[in-house]
Each structure stands twice: as C-alpha cells, then as structure tokens.
Amino acid sequence: MKFGILVNEGPYQHQASDSAYQFTKAALEKGHEIFRVFFYHDGVNNATRLTVPPRDDRNIVDRWSELAKQHNLDLVVCIAAAQRRGLLDENEAKRQGKDANNIAEGFRISGLGQLIEAGIQSERLVVFGD
C-alpha cells in the first residue's frame, strides 16, 4: 500500500510526532511504500537540527533524518508554517536576510501543494495530530 503521512504536532510536546514515526517505520518494514511525510502546524519543529534532547531520551529529529537516509524518504516541511515558527533552510535564510538556517538533514522545505499531491498520489493519507 502507498501511504502519505501528515504530522501536525511538534516533537516532545505531543505524542503525534512519535506515533507518526513509529507508523512510518513499521509500514516500511512491512514493505509498504511511503510516498511522502508532510510536516505542518507545529509539526515543522520536527525538522530543526538544533534540537538537543537529554541523552537518555530519544532524538526525534535525528530519528527522522536516519529513516529518510535509510529508505530514501521524502520529508517535506510546509514553508508558510515553517517561516512563522523560525525554521529556515539555506536558501530561505538568504532570501529573508537571516543569519542562520536550522533545517535537519533529509528534510526539505516546500509548499502546501506537496500535501495535496500526497493526498492525490497515496492510497491512504494518515493524519497524526491532536
């Protein structure tokens, strides 16, 4: 089955982010295809590489990056939601005149059209939120 995943909540604040990761990982292990994981609302905060959780806790951001590397996952962060919350890639930082960027490896920033496309192309779009 081809899945699209929507993550609407931030890391550590809300279990939705963990559940989305566990679901995605399990689906891949069972041989399913993940068309795209789209991060929206506070979900964009799953993509900041400046996250430094305590050592005895899971690293949610790194976990996504590793999964993306392993399975060539498409992790897409909504640009409008990201800009509101201070999440920028190199290009956007330059364009907005900011002195740093903070997007983690394996994520890319793009528009909401990518979410709609995931809805169209996937057999199931699974939403993880509040």
Partner: peptide, 14 residues
C-alpha cells in the same frame, strides 16, 4: 492554517 490548505488545494481541482 487549515484554511490555507483549502485555498492552496483549490488549485488542484479536486
């Protein structure tokens, strides 16, 4: 932000 998705999504003729 839901409304923003609806407006962008409208361009896809679904």
């Amino acid at each position: 932000e839901s409304l923003e998705v609806v407006l962008i999504g409208a361009a896809f003729d679904q």
